[in-house]
């Protein structure tokens, strides 16, 4: 058991780590094809990272340790979270620790580190976008917590693998109003957390609109590579979490090599599909004005809360 379990954990980290830049490249490719461009190819993010790693990291004058450790911390928290979340298998040595609250806190820690780094540079852009990022985060974190909490009520635990196992065994849970509302809420929250349209535009550097990009303006070289990789990891992780929670079919619930291999293929397919849908949607959507973002997030918070209440009251007594 333990070999397969450890292999699953390692597999999760490796697949997400290697796949995250590929996913980003894949999404960019889908987008450029839809817009009628040839695109740079799926491998372009990897090439970018290799190029950046070859350059010297520059630390602006007057910045402290917060600026320097933020990229490493971002990647580290995301990797730990990746190890915990049941992406490929629910039966891993660490599944006992894969608590919902731990995962959300790890993701929040990465966000916080980056916001602190933005503040640390002392530039106007860094401070501004750090404050925007924290505003968004303040609304997103409770939404994620509530949405997954809604799913944890039928399972009776906040342990993520247990929730996923329950959903695999009893698919009716997902078609309940709680499941649908939580899906919608979590989808919006994931968009906001990963800085995608309509909350933020990952490919702009226009000072009026950007949130995430302004925090990392001062990074260069290897640090920038880490920051970019961190962002890509988070996107993959959250999309993976979304697919595990709401389309858990195929995830290995027992320790066997065949199910694990099948889970690997299915996971890649699911995440690629989600990424393609997201990229296609981004072509057609416009970014919401910054003042309307809290509205969107309050809406998703409300959906999550409705999910909790309906999951508690509609089927709670039965």
């Amino acid at each position: 058991m333990s070999t397969v379990g450890y292999a699953a954990v390692a597999g999760q980290i490796v697949v997400v780590g290697a796949g995250a830049p590929l996913l980003t490249g894949w999404m960019r490719q889908v987008r450029s094809r839809l817009e009628g461009r040839a695109g740079a190819g799926v491998l372009q993010p990897w090439r970018d990272i290799r190029k950046l790693l070859g350059k010297e990291a520059i630390t602006p004058a007057g910045t402290g340790p917060a600026f320097r450790i933020a990229p490493a911390l971002l990647v580290a928290t995301t990797v730990v979270a990746t190890a915990l979340v049941p992406l490929l298998s629910t039966d891993t040595p660490v599944s006992g620790h894969a608590d919902l609250i731990v995962v959300v806190a790890l993701i929040a820690l990465g966000t916080l580190a980056l916001a602190l780094a933005g503040l640390d540079t002392g530039t106007a852009f860094g401070g501004m976008s750090a404050s925007r990022e924290m505003t968004v985060a303040a609304l997103v974190e409770p939404t994620i917590l509530l949405a997954v909490f809604a799913l944890s009520i039928p399972a009776g635990t906040t342990n993520l693998p247990a929730i996923v196992t329950g959903a695999v065994e009893e698919p009716a849970r997902l078609a309940s109003p709680a499941g649908l509302l939580a899906t919608a809420a979590l989808a919006v929250a994931v968009l906001a957390e990963t800085g995608r349209i309509p909350v933020d535009n990952p490919s702009t550097h226009l000072e009026l609109t950007m949130i995430h990009e302004a925090m990392v303006l001062e990074y260069a070289g290897g640090d920038l590579a880490l920051v970019e990789l961190g962002a890509q990891l988070r996107l993959t992780l959250l999309l993976g979490l979304l697919s595990s929670l709401f389309a858990p079919w195929g995830i290995a619930t027992s320790a066997s090599w065949t199910t694990l291999a099948l889970a690997l293929v299915l996971f890649a397919a699911k995440v690629a599909l989600l990424g393609a849908v997201l990229a296609a949607a981004e072509v057609f959507w416009a970014k919401v004005r910054l003042f309307r973002v809290p509205e969107l997030l309050a809406g998703s918070f409300l959906l999550a809360l409705l999910a909790v209440t309906s999951s508690y009251f509609l089927s709670g007594g039965s």
């Binding site: 078609a175 309940s176 109003p177 709680a178 649908l180 509302l181 409705l306 309906s310 509609l314 089927s315």
Partner: peptide, 13 residues
């Protein structure tokens, strides 16, 4: 029960 819950959810939504 399932259909009822889904309908009510849509109604509230």
């Amino acid at each position: 029960t399932q259909l009822l819950d889904v309908t009510c959810g849509a109604f509230l939504l």
